[in-house]
Design a protein around this nucleic acid. Structure first.
Lengths: 154, 154
DNA sequence: CTGTGTGCAAAGCATTTGCACTATG
DNA sequence: CATAGTGCAAATGCTTTGCACACAG
């Protein structure tokens, strides 16, 4: 909770105007442990504030993304999903993605070993390819428990 | 070259009919060291065989993907990009993705260390979350040389 | 007050689908 | 020849844009 308020404070300074939609969307992102699509957020929002449009959700997510507080992950189902970035959530993690339903699960096992490898790799790659690396992403793809059962026949 | 012919032979058996479009598209994928979007492939194809439609490209890529010989990577620009799968190209690798232009570069450094970590992680995750893991993906995201220069002012 | 942010409707893209036609096996 | 595969045009679904209005600072 304290973290959330600090974040809002920072945002108020970075952003031109702190509006209701921005406030609500930040709260939804902050509360959710899931990775939400723009539509997901719109639907949640719709139940309490039906006046807010899907466009605003997209624009707000885009804004938060530019400010570096939201990460965008493209799901195999064609949508993008959004989450507060690790810095804000204070936990570096990666994803387990279900190819059946698009669901994304976080994991943060082996963070230390991963970090070593990632650092080493980043260093070599950025030199070799003259690339400016901002970020990395590790995913494991497969089927979640539910989809395993559903698709069992095939 | 020999590899390519063996692959075609295998495919002829797995697939119902071995048609011209399928043949051309396989060749384009096999020759290219880039990760091509459906449109890219269509454009290449168009210069020599203007009769073949974009739909067929999508359907063929989807077919190859189902057969496991083509990998699909979603690029931050919203398109999907396709490449022959590692098994066929005989080299396990991962991606360096440019957030500016969507370009994807392969790398295969630290494959051995990566494999260790990946194996260990897969084992733990599949048990913990009851997930059936097919595949993993590691990406580094940033700006390629060209986009670094273009965006330098911002 | 004065723009910045918003909602709505329409436009833009990548991808998929329906259907009549073609060409493989 | 029978039917799997194809091309075209239209449909779909996510995301972006244009424009008049609304409200935060």
């Amino acid at each position: 909770m304290r973290g959330r308020h600090r974040l809002k404070h920072t945002l108020r300074e970075k952003v031109g105007r702190w509006t209701q939609p921005r406030d609500f969307i930040l709260d939804i992102l902050d509360r959710s442990r899931e990775h939400l699509s723009a539509k997901d957020i719109y639907d949640i929002l719709y139940s309490t504030h039906p006046g807010i449009g899907l466009t605003t959700v997209y624009r707000t997510l885009e804004l938060f993304h530019r400010l570096g507080i939201v990460k965008k992950v493209s799901s195999p189902d064609g949508q993008s999903r959004y989450e507060l970035s690790s810095e804000e959530k204070k936990a570096h993690h990666h994803h387990l993605i279900c190819l059946g339903c698009g669901k994304i699960i976080d994991y943060q096992d082996f963070a230390k070993e991963e970090l070593e490898l990632v650092k080493k790799t980043e260093k070599v790659l950025s030199q070799k390819h003259n690339f400016l690396i901002f970020d990395h992403n590790i995913e494991f793809r497969g089927l979640c428990e539910k989809c395993r059962k559903t698709l069992a026949v095939e």
